[in-house]
């Protein structure tokens, strides 16, 4: 079984703070991490490798330092890794990114001597963009089925059966190879990298791909290939603080609260 996992290095958005005076994002000192949902995706691939024997290849599109998450993925047990890094793909919106990655997937398959990958796994969304679009966009570009919000994956032969999260519960969907699946947290608990894996991964040469290597149509990448663009960025208006009740005896606070809620006809 040949599996490709798309991974992304993202800032740890839980650590991002807003400057209270300038109302701008303080990016300095925010650590970069392996996008959590991509870890779930990789863990799913590694479990298939453990249970059924599979080769797991990683692909990431990002600046040169994104190679760190590729090393972490290799340390967790992935077999191969590729980094697509090129200034020209910068500024791409989700359509352009999906196109770039799809072209990269084709190139990586070629480099691995494959016609196609059987399963492509992605995280549901990246925690910086939060769009949850790139997985489906890659699937659409490659013309393969997509199954999103995977909470459980079973593979038998060339068939995948996935339990997808849904507002009502779960939808069970089937598809045949090749298929793209996006992972949610519920899917699994990602394993930790091993020490030996980390040390081996440190020493590995990770091949980089440029826009030219993956044969993109330049009009479809970067800003020129992006139908959407950002008109403005701002920090969300903060709700202002209301009435805070801090009494030794919470019964007093509760009584005051109930009074106010009744006054305002909220209860």
């Amino acid at each position: 079984m040949e599996i490709l996992v798309c991974v992304k290095q993202v800032p740890d958005t839980a650590e991002v703070k807003i400057d209270p005076v300038k109302h701008t994002v303080i990016r300095a000192g925010v650590p970069n991490i392996f996008n959590p949902f991509d870890q779930n995706a990789l863990e799913a691939a590694l479990q298939l490798k453990d249970e059924q024997g599979a080769k797991v290849t990683l692909l990431s599109m990002g600046p040169p330092q994104a190679v760190e998450v590729l090393r972490e993925g290799l340390a967790m047990g992935a077999d191969e890794a590729y980094l697509l890094t090129d200034r020209k793909v910068g500024g791409s919106d989700t359509l352009a990114t999906g196109y770039c990655l799809a072209q990269a997937v084709r190139k990586v398959a070629e480099l691995q001597g494959l016609d196609h990958f059987d399963i492509i796994l992605c995280g549901k969304q990246a925690i910086d963009g939060d769009t949850a679009q790139v997985g489906p966009q890659i699937a659409a570009e490659l013309g393969i089925p997509q199954i999103t919000y995977a909470a459980h994956i079973a593979v038998e032969g060339e068939k995948v059966t996935v339990k997808q999260q849904n507002e009502e519960g779960y939808i069970v969907t089937e598809a045949s190879f090749p298929v793209l699946i996006t992972a949610v947290k519920e899917l699994n608990e990602p394993r930790f990298p091993t020490i030996r894996g980390t040390m081996k991964a440190k020493r590995r040469e990770i091949p980089t791909l440029s826009a030219e290597d993956i044969k993109v149509d330049e009009s479809r990448i970067g800003l020129s290939g992006s139908p959407t663009n950002v008109r403005k960025i701002f920090t969300p208006p903060q709700r202002t603080q209301g009435l805070i009740l801090n009494n030794e005896d919470v019964a007093v606070s509760v009584a005051t609260l109930m009074e106010k809620l009744a006054e305002q006809k909220i209860i």
């Binding site: 394993r191 930790f192 990298p193 091993t194 020490i195 030996r196 894996g197 040390m199």
Partner: peptide
């Protein structure tokens, strides 16, 4: 088990015995 599987059981022993050689 998970902690040991990370390889922490052999941090400073040589690789020939399955350690990390650190």
């Amino acid at each position: 088990k998970e902690m040991l599987e990370m390889g922490l059981g052999g941090t400073y022993f040589p690789e020939e015995y399955g350690g990390a050689g650190a």
